[in-house]
Design a protein around this nucleic acid. Sequence first.
DNA 1: GAGCGAGTTCGATAGCCGTCAAACTTCGTC
DNA 2: GACGAAGTTTGACGGCTATCGAACTCGCTC
Lengths: 114, 114
Amino acid sequence: MSTSPATEAPAYPTLPVADVHQVLSALADPIRLEIVRRLSRAGGGPTPCAHLYDGVSKSTASHHFKTLREAGLTERSVEAGQSCQRLRVAEVEQALPGILSAVLRAADELTPPQ
Amino acid sequence: MSTSPATEAPAYPTLPVADVHQVLSALADPIRLEIVRRLSRAGGGPTPCAHLYDGVSKSTASHHFKTLREAGLTERSVEAGQSCQRLRVAEVEQALPGILSAVLRAADELTPPQ
DNA sequence: GAGCGAGTTCGATAGCCGTCAAACTTCGTC
DNA sequence: GACGAAGTTTGACGGCTATCGAACTCGCTC
């Protein structure tokens, strides 16, 4: 049944940062970690989905976006008609201090950005 | 074939600290993270296997020990006839600075020790 | 409003992972 | 040497998860 709100849709809810297990699971997947890296490099602003992944299908990427969102690592927004993801740096840092920055640093040492 | 060294057995080889993906996967499992927490609380010394887990069978625990060892997080030794595990704090800190300490801190906030 | 492009959802599938019991190994002890 | 305790390995099983194509939805644009 289509509710189709006439005013505005909050789209997808932003969830609280999950516990350490769920966050580590989310970051442990190479594709998801790469998404997080690109979001981080984008400076914390909303980034269009299409810029965040390579080598997997759209449906797979969408699944990973959902996983990251459910872990509270990202949130979704819509900018000029296209779906964007944003890394919730401050919220994650507050909930799980030091983890995100340490993981991003380690990933950069493994495979430096370009 | 049993080589049975007369001098001393290095038992199981200590592996290098694995990449960030494998380490995060190892730490993402609740039972393994609890093992790591107990090893950390033991002050970096070798700790008998039996003190490191509850609620799972010996074989499952042994499987988790192996996973941690393969990620380079722990190493095995034998003290007075019983098998012990040791958390490789310094090695992990050097390979992946900040990750282990941040994860342990987050775990302590989730469920404080006793 | 017809068409299009970008994302998401839906099934379906294959592989991985956590779990256990049972068998085996290796100690130490009687 | 026989027994027992502590760990490990093996084999099997169930559930979770990453993946894809196809169908669907939602905004734009013409």
